[in-house]
Structures are given as structure tokens and as C-alpha cells.
Amino acid sequence: MMLLPCPWCGPRNATEFRYVGEAGPRPDPASTTPEEWRRYLFMHANPCGPVKETWYHRAGCRRYLAVERDTATNEVRSAVDSATGVAR
């Protein structure tokens, strides 16, 4: 069971969190094109290695966290609060 170092709650089991995934920048809805918008919707980096992604600590502080994780090993390098940037 992977551990995520929650900036508010400390290291916690991954089952306490909901995986959200990579969140790319949201295009301006007024001017966006279908190509651009659907890239935002569907195309996410899928590297075998370090990735930046979002997790939600649903069974803890209920904060959204920006997490750096290696998808090859599941090693978590950092986790900070998405809104405040608070790190542990």
C-alpha cells in the first residue's frame, strides 16, 4: 500500500485518497476550439516515470493535493496543497 505524505495529515495510506490524475490548464471557454478543448479533456501525459498529478484526501483533510509520483515505482516525491502550496 502506497503512502502519500499529506501536507496536513502526515503520511497516509493511498486508500484514503481519490486519484484525480493530471490536470492540464483549462482553455478559455469563450475562445477555445474543439481540438484544444478535447486535448484538455482527453489527452494526458502517460509517462513511465515522474508525473505531476492531483489527489484528493477524501478520508482526511479533504484537500486537493499536487503530487509528484514516479509511475514506474509508485514512489511519491512530494505532495503539496493545491490551493495554498503548503508542503509538509
Binding site: 500500500m1 493511498a14 486508500t15 481519490r18 486519484y19 490524475g21 502517460n46 513511465c48 508525473v51 498529478e53 509511475t71 514506474a72 515505482t73 509508485n74
Partner: peptide, 13 residues
Amino acid sequence: DPFASYSMRGSLE
């Protein structure tokens, strides 16, 4: 599994 990964180690849960 609930999150994306290339790890094939499997889990107890």
C-alpha cells in the same frame, strides 16, 4: 487499480 501506474507489483488491498 484506482490510480495510473506502470508498476505490476500488485497490492494486498
